[in-house]
Computed example of a mutant assay.
Amino acid sequence: MTEQTRTTTTTQREAPRIVTRTGPGKFFADTAAVFTREILLVLRDPFTLIFSLLQPLIFLGLFGPLLTGTFGGGFGAEGASTADTLQWFVPGVIVMISLFGTSMTGSNLLYEVMTGSYERVLATPLDRSAILVGRALKEFAPLLVQGLLIAVVCIPFGFTFHLLPALFGLALLGLFGIGVGALSLALALASKNREWLFWGVQQSLLFPLLILSGMMLPLEAGPSWMQTAAKFNPLTYMVDAERVLFGGTFADTAVLWGVVAAAVTCAVGLLVGIRATRKAV
């Protein structure tokens, strides 16, 4: 054996073996990588996070006084009226944050498609499903922070904060938000090169869902057709569940229906989103 052959053989023996993950291990690792990338972009641009926190506080300040007649008191009044108003309204505002944030997830993807960065992501060995799930999971972290901050800000004004039920409610919203975010990403992929289509569909669906959920105003005083339509709105069950949970109660059928609505939305969203992501070129 020559010296060159001996050196080549030794090098081959000493070369480290590259272990390629497959199956669930690769999926979870790729999902973590995509989530880390996406959340770092949020942390580098905190202005967007701050602005999205100010918006629901403005809703609290403006809509709160309008609800005083419903609860028999003023938003700034002393006693139970203020607490009742906040206890009813704050969970709806937190659901609104989730809906607004996750439904606009696709807008970031549209920007990446226009700049060509999304094609570079698709060229990597990342699992296509992990790309979508990681992006959708990114919406949960800001939601958790924003929801807790809003609840804490309202405590001095009479809002009663129950930690464990509230955390469960935020986790439930995270599950729901993954589904909505996945649907938003699928819509963005379907609207590629037609940005107007994404915003047209998103805005056309967003506000009817918001109004028909009883998020801002109670539906009990509305017409019967509106109350019937609300029963087919998954957001209605999410709002009802969040109000019960933020009220400190787990044992309520509204919570069960909220879990069902969140799970179904998440499953449908991931099914549609993963299929759209795998077809993307």
Results as ranks from 00 to 15, higher is better:
residue 70 T to V: 14
residue 180 V to S: 02
residue 280 A to H: 06
residue 82 T to W: 01
residue 240 D to N: 12
residue 278 R to K: 15
residue 267 A to R: 05
residue 49 L to V: 15
residue 132 L to K: 01
residue 9 T to M: 10
residue 143 L to P: 00
residue 126 L to Q: 07
residue 112 E to S: 14
residue 168 F to R: 06
residue 191 S to G: 03
residue 200 G to K: 06
residue 119 E to V: 07
residue 252 D to S: 15
residue 89 F to M: 11
residue 87 Q to L: 01
residue 216 M to Q: 07
residue 236 T to K: 06
residue 110 L to C: 10
residue 78 E to Q: 13
residue 122 L to R: 13
residue 27 F to T: 11
residue 246 F to Q: 11
residue 207 F to D: 06
residue 197 L to Q: 03
residue 153 V to M: 10
residue 166 A to S: 15
residue 3 E to A: 13
residue 217 L to S: 00
residue 202 Q to H: 09
residue 215 M to A: 13
residue 34 V to Y: 02
residue 247 G to C: 10
residue 252 D to T: 05
residue 17 R to T: 15
residue 206 L to P: 01
residue 142 P to L: 12
residue 105 T to I: 01
residue 30 D to Y: 08
residue 271 L to W: 14
residue 87 Q to E: 05
residue 242 E to H: 08
residue 254 A to S: 13
residue 100 F to H: 11
residue 280 A to S: 07
residue 129 S to K: 11
residue 166 A to E: 03
residue 146 Q to Y: 00
residue 267 A to K: 04
residue 26 K to V: 07
residue 34 V to W: 01
residue 160 T to V: 14
residue 3 E to G: 01
residue 22 T to E: 09
residue 77 A to F: 04
residue 257 W to H: 08
residue 268 V to E: 00
residue 241 A to S: 11
residue 126 L to S: 09
residue 30 D to E: 09
residue 120 R to M: 13
residue 161 F to A: 13
residue 195 E to P: 10
residue 173 L to I: 08
residue 51 F to K: 08
residue 31 T to Y: 05
residue 102 T to V: 08
residue 273 G to H: 04
residue 122 L to P: 00
residue 253 T to A: 15
residue 238 M to L: 15
residue 163 L to W: 14
residue 209 L to E: 04
residue 248 G to W: 09
residue 189 L to P: 04
residue 234 P to D: 04
residue 125 P to A: 02
residue 154 C to M: 15
